[in-house]
Design a binder for these strands. Structure first.
Length: 729
DNA sequence: CCCGTCGTTATTTTT
DNA sequence: TAACGACGGG
């Protein structure tokens, strides 16, 4: 048996068809857990082994570095030659392209990438009339415009932001950004598109180079990325480039950030003769979890439509739990996890999902209290922390002395007596001279009196010294970049500044800076090494966060958005309440996106799924009465096993079997109506049971419960209802 | 220019 | 509730 036969044998018929398909564009609609990564990686190996495609001319793009890394590793495991294939994120491809064709694209070869924060700062400097908030809003709109590949001159710009001065704000920002030589994230996609459209020779060069292009998570691509794919593939030129995209329209959850579901819905129109293959066999979740997922997403209108078939057993029904308050919610989750842990289930098996980052707080408090180990994924990103951005800003300024944003960030940190006024003047001087900000400091210091003078010279000397250090080391000298970063942190005074902050606020800033230093050991102490390091950080931030504890036994706390591509044996999706999830008054296509988000959450679960909904929640310090999420009633009955009692007036999936209503008419005691003979119950400690008798003792209503575990207990629902929940099947 | 206090305002966010 | 930004006194 050849290697090829061996790995093809691992595939089901649809997967195999997708791998061996050739000669026309291919759209793979891959449902959650249907093995799409396996298909892509096998296809890469197959193209190299059987079709003798040069690995070098295969381009596979993903959205996250994590996905790119996993894909590369798995492809290489199948075929070592795949190490030479270009497997990268859209943005890292854009970065590669822009450095290669920097002159044509109009950027500095050694550009660094501005993030959303930097964009907002630059907008406020380019258009000083705007308040901080207006600048941030404008920056967001500019990013969105770039996602749609719109320049300040584009007629369609009004669709993004109709305000009449928006094109001017955008244009002013662009002018200022080009002056720095840097780019923003949007540029990494948009500028290559513009360059490719403008230069026929570059287009031809790319067509010659890349014979196969594959795109993962295609449902989350935006218009600019679509145009990039179109230009690279050369549909109009009939370049013969093979295009294969993989995605799932039901998992499109980044529309608010410019992702365009239409890209996948209309792919066949833009790429003639497209072959469509559906992967609908799900190898991840049990049948009853998939049934729940389908009962949600089938309420969406705008979808290509597909039904997942479970390859695993039926499994246990997902459990829907109605709880009084959010505190009960975190207690319920903690109980569930602790109980499973005593039975040998690891913490690592569990994930708690929520709509907004703020919701993690309640769980953190409860878990800390109960000593349940956990990790919060996402919320405060390492590279977005103040101290890290400070050090990176200093490094960026060394790399590019025209970097205005980096300059402003650190020139007066620690305080050197150089406030806004001085900064503006220096930046202005540098802009008119068209030169370096450091030179401008020296120049401006001459015309300035005493105090500012020494500060300016001190700062300039520091920047010059560090820059000179870097130039003096020949590249490949074997010295590590981490030594240089350590020196930068030390000499700039930033390390000392943040260490003293630690003492006041009890933070971990100094330790974080040390982590940053450590992360640079693999880079050379040279100008090129620094550029590589900054590039890697800008584009690959999320994955290898220092302190990543995926190895140890922790419960995962994570937003629904962040779970894309992940899976867990046991999942709890929390906060299923109108206003929280779906958020506020989402309607139409926004509501459909929320529904897809729920779908993504459900399909993360392999074996067990729990869903919680509270009656009372504190929002912004105010106590609000919540209604269960409309998604729950849409699911219809029979999908979930229901625990607890939904708030009055809720006619969702837990409609009573008629018994409760009948009893209410016969009995004046509301407790007796609810806690009647035959009612099925769930108790935090004793598990499932049924009421076998009821009585009144000394004026108190008492029930006797027979538990499935064998034990028989008595309870007074008036006082103990918090630990007892009624089961509605 | 620095630091404290008060008032305002709250999504999701691969890169 | 909490966190962050705007403003005013030192």
């Amino acid at each position: 048996m050849s290697d090829t036969e061996r790995y093809l044998a691992l595939l089901n018929p649809e997967q195999r068809e997708a791998v061996v398909h050739e000669n026309s564009p291919l759209l793979i609609l891959a449902g959650a857990g249907s093995g799409k990564t396996r298909v892509i990686t096998t296809k890469i190996a197959y193209l190299i082994d059987e079709k003798h495609i040069q690995p070098y001319s295969i381009l596979a793009v993903t959205f996250t570095k994590k996905a790119a890394k996993e894909m590369a590793e798995r492809a290489v495991a199948l075929e070592p030659l795949a190490a030479d294939a270009q497997i990268r994120t859209f943005h890292s491809f854009g970065s590669w392209f822009l450095r290669k064709f920097a002159d044509e694209a109009g950027v500095d070869k050694s550009f660094t990438v501005y993030d959303d924060d930097d964009m907002a700062t630059l907008v406020s400097k380019a258009v000083p009339a705007l308040s901080k908030q207006e600048a941030a809003k404008a920056a967001h709109k500019i990013a969105l415009a770039k996602d749609y590949c719109l320049t300040p001159e584009s007629k369609e710009l009004a669709a993004v932001e109709s305000s009449p001065d928006f094109p001017d704000v955008y244009a002013a920002y662009e002018k200022r950004l080009r002056e720095t030589g840097n780019v923003d994230f949007g540029d990494l996609i948009m500028l290559p598109v513009i360059t490719l459209n403008e230069y026929e020779n570059i287009r031809a060069q790319m067509h010659y180079r890349f014979r196969v292009i594959m795109v993962d998570e295609y449902q989350d691509s935006n218009v600019a990325q679509f145009k990039l794919l179109q230009a690279l593939a050369g549909v109009e030129e009939k370049s013969g480039t093979y295009v294969c995209v993989v995605g799932d329209d039901d998992q499109s959850i980044y529309r608010f950030r410019g992702a365009e579901v239409q890209n996948i819905l209309t792919f066949q129109k833009h790429f003639p003769d497209t072959k469509l293959i559906r992967l609908e066999r799900n190898y991840r979740s049990t049948a009853s979890i998939l049934a729940a997922a389908d009962s949600i997403v089938r309420n969406n209108e705008d979808r290509l439509g597909k039904t997942l078939k479970a390859e695993r057993g039926e499994g246990s029904k997902p459990v829907l739990v109605f709880l009084p308050t959010q505190d009960d919610e975190s207690a319920f989750c903690a109980d569930l996890i602790q109980k499973a842990h005593t039975k040998g289930c690891t913490y690592h098996d569990w994930a708690i999902l929520y709509r907004t980052n703020a919701q993690s707080l309640g769980f953190e408090t409860e878990f800390l209290h109960r000593k349940i180990p956990y990790t919060v994924v996402g919320s405060l990103k390492f590279y977005e922390r103040e101290e890290i951005k400070d050090i990176l800003a200093f490094l960026s300024l060394v790399a590019n002395p025209k970097d205005e944003i980096a300059f402003r960030r650190i020139i007066n940190k620690p305080a050197r007596g150089l406030g806004d006024k001085t900064q503006d003047a220096v930046v202005e001087a540098a802009r008119t001279a068209g030169g370096s900000l450091i030179d401008a400091c020296r120049e401006y210091a001459k015309s300035k009196s005493k105090k500012a003078q020494s500060g300016l010279n001190e700062f300039a000397a520091l920047a010059e010294e560090l820059a000179a250090d870097l130039e003096n080391v020949s590249s490949d000298s074997g010295i590590k970049l981490s030594a240089f970063i350590e020196k930068t942190a030390d000499r700039s005074g930033l390390l000392e500044y943040h260490t003293s902050q630690d003492e006041v606020a009890g933070t971990q800033k100094a330790a974080n800076i040390q982590e940053l230093i450590n992360s640079a050991v693999l880079y050379a102490e040279s100008r090129q090494g620094l550029l590589d390091f900054l590039d890697a950080i800008e584009l690959d931030r999320a994955p290898e966060e220092p302190g990543d504890e995926t190895e140890s036994d922790n419960v995962t706390l994570i937003t629904l958005h962040n779970t894309k591509g992940l899976e867990f044996p046991r999942v709890i999706i929390t906060g299923l309440e109108n206003g929280i999830f779906p958020r506020q008054d989402k309607t139409g296509s926004d509501l459909e996106e929320e529904r897809r988000l729920f779908y993504v959450g459900i399909t993360r679960a392999k074996d067990e799924l729990y869903i919680t909904s509270c009656s009372i929640r504190r929002i912004y310090g105010r106590t609000e009465y919540m209604q269960p999420s409309q998604f729950l009633s849409e699911a219809g009955s029979g999908v979930f096993k229901v625990l607890g009692t939904p708030p009055a007036g809720y006619y969702g999936s837990s409609v009573s079997d008629g018994r409760n209503g009948d009893m209410m008419a016969e009995n004046e005691n509301p407790l007796a109506a609810k806690w009647c003979k035959g009612t099925r119950l769930y108790h935090d400690d004793w598990g499932y049971g049924q009421i076998i008798s009821t009585e009144s003792r000394e004026g108190e209503y008492v029930i006797t419960v027979q538990f499935e575990s064998g034990s028989r207990k008595q309870f007074m629902p008036a006082y103990q209802s918090h630990s007892l929940m009624i089961v509605h099947d």
